[in-house]
Each structure stands twice: as C-alpha cells, then as structure tokens.
C-alpha cells in the first residue's frame, strides 16, 4: 500500500508500491498523449517555435476541453484568438509537469523538491480531471457516488475500475497538497 505524502526534514516524501507506480506512469503517459499537439504538414515551423498555432480550435473531446478551457465564457472569438497564442505553450507546460512526475517514479521512495511537488500536484490534478470526465462526474453528488467505491474487490467493470483509480489519485493528491501546505507554513 502507498503511504501518504508527508513533510519532514528531507522535504516532501512518499512511498508507492511497484504496481501503483506502474499505474501512475500509465496514467501520466495517457494524459501526455492526449495533450501532444498533432503535427501538421502545412505548419509554419517558426510560428510553432514561438508557441503560435493559427489552426488551434476548441477541442471536441470533453476531457481535453477541461484541460485546455476557453478563456472567456461569453466571447468565443476572443477565446479562439487567445487559444491560438497560448494553447501550444499550455500543452507543453502540462506535458512537462506530467513527464517530470513520471520520471520521479523510478524509485519506491519518493523525495520531492518544491518544484517536483508542484509538478506532481499538477500532474495528479490533470489525471483526475480526465478520469472525472470519463466517469461523467458533473457535480458534487456524482463525485460523492464515485467516492463510495473504495474496495478493489468491487472492480468488476471498466467504470468501477476507473472509479477506484480516481479515488486513489484523489487520496494521493490530497496527501501531497497537505504536505505542500505544511511546507508553506514552515517556510513562512
């Protein structure tokens, strides 16, 4: 069983079983592959280099839309323009955090620097956002139902398995954030 993250003299530390590390690695990789921008033949390489994407569109996939949301609730044209200037670098920063967290999975014992901890919290959050879309969590009541699923012997279909994975990542992120909040107190 994983141990909750805690904050101590070594910084933020945690422990994961090999199977849990494998699970997290595949979740991080899945979200990375969702976020990787498609290469287009007619793409302007210089524009891509500076992060512009004239072809960017609001994603049709709900989960991706939650990871890369519109910046305006009411002005679609403004959202699209903003997306063209910022979406590529947002995708890259998310991919960076997910890959950094994934690299840290090489050992059972996790010792996180403040930067590692930030990457981990972002990576776990993005994984949870994607799982929540797949589980159709729309409100607190839905979240409550999913939360009831805690026993791995109950995993009999894809949905119940996803719910268990969601609850595991939720627990892990909560323990990490508590440790990060504690480190804020100590650093002042």
């Amino acid at each position: 069983m994983a141990k909750a993250f805690k904050y101590g003299v070594k910084g933020i530390t945690g422990y994961l079983e090999p199977a849990e590390r494998e699970l997290l690695r595949s979740l991080f990789d899945d979200v990375v592959s969702m976020l990787e921008p498609e290469e287009r033949a007619n793409q302007d390489p210089l524009a891509a280099l500076v992060g512009l994407d004239a072809e960017a569109r609001e994603p049709s996939d709900r989960a991706l839309r939650r990871l890369l949301p519109n910046v305006s609730k009411t002005d679609d044209a403004a959202s699209l323009e903003f997306r063209r200037y910022t979406e590529r670098s947002l995708r890259e920063s998310k991919i960076g955090a997910l890959k950094a967290a994934s690299l840290g999975l090489d050992k059972d014992e996790l010792v996180l620097t403040p930067a590692d901890a930030r990457h981990w919290s972002m990576a776990l959050n993005d994984v949870r956002l994607v799982l929540a879309e797949r589980l159709d969590i729309r409100d607190d009541e839905d979240a409550g139902h999913v939360h009831l699923m805690q026993d791995w012997s109950q995993a009999e279909d894809v949905e119940s398995y996803l719910a268990l994975v969601y609850n595991f990542t939720t627990w892990l992120q909560e323990s990490l954030v508590q440790a990060m909040l504690q480190s804020l107190e100590t650093r002042g």
Partner: peptide, 20 residues
C-alpha cells in the same frame, strides 16, 4: 480573473494555488 467551481479540484489544492 474568475475561478469557477468544479466537482474535481480539491479545496486544499485550490487554496494552495491561491497562496503559492
């Protein structure tokens, strides 16, 4: 800058982001 509620983000995490 407006932040919207959703059923996924942890309250502790949202608070952490605002602080840090």
């Amino acid at each position: 800058l407006v932040i919207w509620n959703d059923p996924v983000n942890l309250m502790s995490y949202v608070s952490y982001v605002f602080r840090s």
